[in-house]
Nucleic acid binder design. Sequence first.
DNA 1: GCGGCCGCGCAAGATCATTGCGCGGGCCGA
DNA 2: TCGGCCCGCGCAATGATCTTGCGCGGCCGC
Lengths: 166, 166
Amino acid sequence: MAGAKLDDIDRKILAELQADGRMTNVELARRVGISAPPCLRRVRVLEELGYIRGYHARIDARELGFEVQVFAMVRLIAQSERDLAAFEAQVQVWPLVRECHMLNGEIDFILKCVAPDLSTFQRFLTSSLTAAPNVASVKTSLVIRASKTEPAVPFEVVEERVREAG
Amino acid sequence: MAGAKLDDIDRKILAELQADGRMTNVELARRVGISAPPCLRRVRVLEELGYIRGYHARIDARELGFEVQVFAMVRLIAQSERDLAAFEAQVQVWPLVRECHMLNGEIDFILKCVAPDLSTFQRFLTSSLTAAPNVASVKTSLVIRASKTEPAVPFEVVEERVREAG
DNA sequence: GCGGCCGCGCAAGATCATTGCGCGGGCCGA
DNA sequence: TCGGCCCGCGCAATGATCTTGCGCGGCCGC
């Protein structure tokens, strides 16, 4: 299923909507070179096939008072699928955890967290995260600044560049 | 500036648009309890003040053929502001790097990367990332699965929950 | 009490979304 | 080669939405 039945217009639609998710359909149609009705139909198909997972406004966490961003590298004691799922379930209910990815290797999970200030985060760290069952160790790093954020370059362009260079 | 002059309606607007960035303005207005024109004016203000940084379609990388996702922890040899900026500039031109965050502590940067397959990533790792000037070491971890992704809970709700619990 | 200011809601014209429909090109079998 | 089928485009029309100007009412300071 992966990338099989997409033509150039589809890829361009994805790239444009990745760059500006609130673009009107007529503007989108103009940019990809077809008229509005088939363009809208293509977007609907891309949504239904799962290429487009949703549309979201990017909110500036710092403007909202979340001055602190932290990456937390978590190691568990036991890593059976049951243990992993239990930790994932726990992560869902922690509002300060914005993202969680399960990794291979030494680190089992990496968590992207936010907090209004350092003391709030440290309270979460000591009383929630490290105190959670099955957590062996947590290493944290404060984010100084974001150097690059998605959507950096549309995936369409990534494909091209990878083909060219490597 | 942080979070000062936002009322409840503003926060609700942010939460709704974070959840669905393509919601029509009339639907948004209905949900936050005001009529469409002032709602649109508020959205414009939130955009101009930087609370809303943009709208983006979330594209499924795996569906597009990017089967591999990797976190790379990078340590540099020298960490002067000039050295840091030089590495950040280099990161911008690598299409496989989707995100880059500068951290404090041992690790200087964490990179979120994608690749069509493992060999493509390893080629990038050896011939680009570790070969870049000033890079001391790179530790990589494959992403097994995403357990939680933004926008998890709208920031509005995070604020409430932090105030309640901790 | 009173004037000024701010933000809301109403109304109208422009723009956009969405559907049905006809047309043309590509493909396959006769 | 030639029909017939199928798919996707573009046109057209209707309804919804966007966008602006404007008047009203509440709130604050004088």
